[in-house]
Design a binder for these strands. Structure first.
Length: 379
DNA sequence: CCCATTTGACCAGC
DNA sequence: GCTGGTCAAATGGG
């Protein structure tokens, strides 16, 4: 376990040093990327090591949780669109010029890492890593019905969004923790309805962008569990987010296409990990792990054991008769209108939306030895 | 008090 | 008339 902790510490240090050199690296995307890679690599090794160590000892339930962690991260890494997403993110953060073409480099690096660190995926490759069939439908423009229904209810939106782009994704439910919640997608959503659907065992949940009112953001999404495989969520997106276009809009995310959002948050996290994770420059003191967690928001995601949804979701599945679709968490009420990348990183790495703290507890209970302050309260 | 979720009712499309 | 999508009052948590 000591080795594992060393790896984690190593990762933290690398993030720390990345932060220090961040201002100088905005023009060196290659260096930035390789630094991020190294950090990820360190944490991946640590995770792998934890998994191995714990698998031998843990009861079945815990094993599956650990496997869930691995496969979640693996899935993300496997995603072929990562290079594109990463570049988009960097550009969005103005770390790369628009014409930078390093997708292959990034992708290659990550692929290597997947192979290296994940052992080819054989061990962790639960069904979902294979089944994570991300179906991005081509922009399907539905027959544009006028929407000019009755005059009396003209304020009301038409049911079938004529002309509105629809994208469908299938997302595996987390294999650990709260499996009711589909992974975070980088945006904040507010649930506005739930409905039982004919011939479906599970109800469908309706969400709209949290910023709909403020910024007239038209983005919506529908979340429903698949009948034949409740472990898979089908998420239908409608409309694009416009909330980020406002200069005053609280939501930072660039207008990424759906398939790019995961990497968007991942890379944003990688970059911001350094920003969040470090000693206060004014005090020049080294923070305890708990302090690090607290200021970095990482703590919100992983240290608050049992918190539903990494982004402080309060998604309530209770009323659903069959525990059907739930939603990506809304976050604005918790001050997360602005993305908090590190929390999202925890999402992705430790299987987003899950509530179990088991895995991180394993880490941080050990960390207590090395980080005496880590018992501090988290907020 | 503000804001998110729940849930029954309402509405539009088919 | 049925079904899916949305509204909005009620409710609850911070």
């Amino acid at each position: 376990m000591d080795e594992t902790i060393d790896l984690i510490l190593q990762g933290c240090q690398m993030a720390k040093s990345l932060e220090g050199s961040l201002p100088n690296m905005t023009n060196q995307p290659e260096s930035l990327i390789s630094s991020c890679d190294e950090i990820i690599r360190a944490f991946s090794r640590a995770k792998e090591s934890i998994s191995k160590a714990q698998l031998a000892v843990l009861p079945e339930s815990h094993k599956s949780q650990l496997l869930g962690i691995s496969s979640g991260f693996q899935e993300w890494l496997r995603d072929s669109s990562i290079p594109t997403r990463a570049m988009d993110l960097l550009r969005a953060q103005q770390l790369l010029p628009d014409d930078t073409k390093l997708k292959g480099a990034i992708g290659g690096g990550l692929d290597e890492m997947v192979v290296d660190q994940m052992g080819g995926g054989g061990r962790c490759g639960g069904r979902h890593s294979l089944e994570r069939a991300r179906e991005i439908e081509p922009p399907a423009v539905e027959a544009a019905s006028s929407g000019g229904g009755r005059a009396s209810s003209s304020q009301r939106q038409r049911k079938r969004d004529g002309g509105v782009e629809r994208r469908v994704e299938r997302v595996p439910a987390p294999q650990m923790g709260n499996t009711e919640i589909p992974p975070e997608d980088g945006y904040t959503w507010r649930k506005y309805g739930q409905k039982d659907i004919l011939n479906s065992r599970f109800p469908r949940s309706y969400f709209r962008c949290t910023h709909q009112k403020l910024y007239q953001c038209p983005a919506k999404k529908l979340v429903q569990r698949l009948d034949d495989d409740p472990n898979i969520f089908e998420v239908t997106y409608r409309g694009d987010h416009t909330c980020h276009l406002s200069s005053t809009a609280p939501s930072v995310p660039p207008p990424l296409p759906v398939e790019r959002r995961e990497a968007h948050s991942m890379m944003q996290q990688a970059t911001a990990a350094a920003i969040h994770s470090l000693p206060n420059p004014t005090t020049n003191t080294t923070l305890s792990m708990s302090q690090w967690l607290t200021i970095s928001d990482f703590g919100l995601a992983v240290a608050g054991g049992g918190v539903v949804g990494s982004t402080s979701s309060t998604v309530n599945m209770g009323s659903s008769t069959s525990g059907g679709a739930a939603a990506g968490p809304s976050t604005s009420r918790y001050g997360r209108d602005v993305d908090y990348p590190v929390a999202d990183m925890a999402d992705v790495m430790f299987n987003s939306g899950s509530s179990s703290s088991t895995s991180m507890d394993l880490i941080f209970s050990s960390m207590d030895d090395k980080w005496p302050d880590s018992a501090d309260k988290k907020n």
